[in-house]
Design a protein around this nucleic acid. Structure first.
Lengths: 203, 203
DNA sequence: AAGTTCAGCTTACATGTGTACGCTATTTTA
DNA sequence: TAAAATAGCGTACACATGTAAGCTGAACTT
């Protein structure tokens, strides 16, 4: 077996091990190097062959989580194109993601308000992607002026993420309920923004 | 000096010490008993004379933070009564609170998505207070039906808390900007909810 | 074939942790 | 005033942590 290949494989298993440790009771700052090494099946000191720090691993995890989220976005856009309503499709896609990638979303949520400035910044970067994309989309489909579209997009992302947070701890029925509610709330925002545009242009 | 009184005083200094440790890099789960004891100026083992656990201290802190938040709410209501606009006054009051009680709000924000189920539940209870109060207020002032008022209130609380999170890390100018933006977003929500009512009653 | 590289290992150490145990000094009770 | 209660302390122990140092064997290079 190739040496480079083997190294990558081990690196992968470290990352997977770390994700598996990030259940509802652990955050990045609370998992120890030794613990990760143990779960990955390597000696503690071998960890350093792959990451300088445990923080470097953390940043890698945030990046991976962000990547997964961006893939989700793309998927949502495809589904929207084939009809079904923007809000409905987006929220449903998002909720499916949370269900399927529990720990991935939990990581983002937790580190968003976590203790590491670097992690917070990394998560914010990912959220900003969402905002930019949604702003652009809104402008191109509704013709809202930039400032209003941007405010609307930001509010929507915040509401969806908050709903996602609720859904993480919730039962299946509760999850459905959360999804329903956030859809209605998103409609409030959309309609409010439209109204704001009407007022702005008529003045 | 009274013995009971002295005990309370020490208990206070433990709590204060803990709050002082909860800066932007520390969460409840990352502060150690010994650290708190050190900061409070007592021996590690003396801690147990006041709290069974470090978790028990944590719950106390969340409760205290919640109390501070409820006092804030009352203050906002007073200021609203003397004019100035509900949204404006509420957001301004909230932002002042965050500025003045940095670590207190940070605690709530962090533990809201933290690693301890008990802490999360405790924070949720505090947020629910906000929702209930705001829902009642909305019904009594606008006559919105319960379901709509409730959705609106929930969305508003979420947006304000999210804005608070942003403000925590922000400079003064940025803070002002965040406040401006969230006010506009709240207006979106309010107007959207009003519109939803119009549609619901006309059907 | 000989030499070099390097992923992963074992061993080791200093440091921080939670908490059990028992003592002391002071307040409180009787 | 004598006895009981108790806030706070010092000592002690078992444990987990990060990481330094050096070794080994297999994969690569020449």
């Amino acid at each position: 077996m190739n040496r480079q290949e083997q190294k990558l494989r081990t690196r992968r298993s470290i990352i997977e091990a770390a994700f598996s440790l990030l259940d509802e009771q652990r955050s990045l700052s609370s998992i120890s190097l030794r613990e990760v090494a143990r779960a990955a099946g390597i000696a503690p000191t071998s960890f350093y062959r792959h990451f300088k720090d445990i923080d470097e691993l953390g940043l890698t995890l945030v990046d991976e989580a962000g990547l997964a989220l961006r893939q989700l976005m793309r998927q949502a856009r495809v589904r929207i194109a084939s009809g079904g309503g923007v809000i409905n499709t987006s929220v449903d896609t998002f909720m499916e993601f949370i269900n399927a990638n529990n720990n991935v979303f939990r990581l983002l949520l937790r580190e968003h308000t976590g203790t590491s400035m670097a992690f917070r910044a990394a998560v914010l970067r990912e959220i900003k992607h969402f905002n930019v994309e949604l702003t652009d989309y809104t402008i191109s489909t509704t013709g809202l002026p930039y400032n209003i579209a941007n405010l609307q997009a930001e509010a929507m992302v915040k509401l969806v993420f908050s709903a996602g947070a609720e859904a993480l701890d919730a039962s299946d029925e509760q999850k459905a309920n959360v999804a329903e509610r956030v859809k209605l709330q998103l409609r409030f925002v959309v309609n409010g923004a439209l109204q704001a545009k009407a007022e702005q242009t008529s003045s």
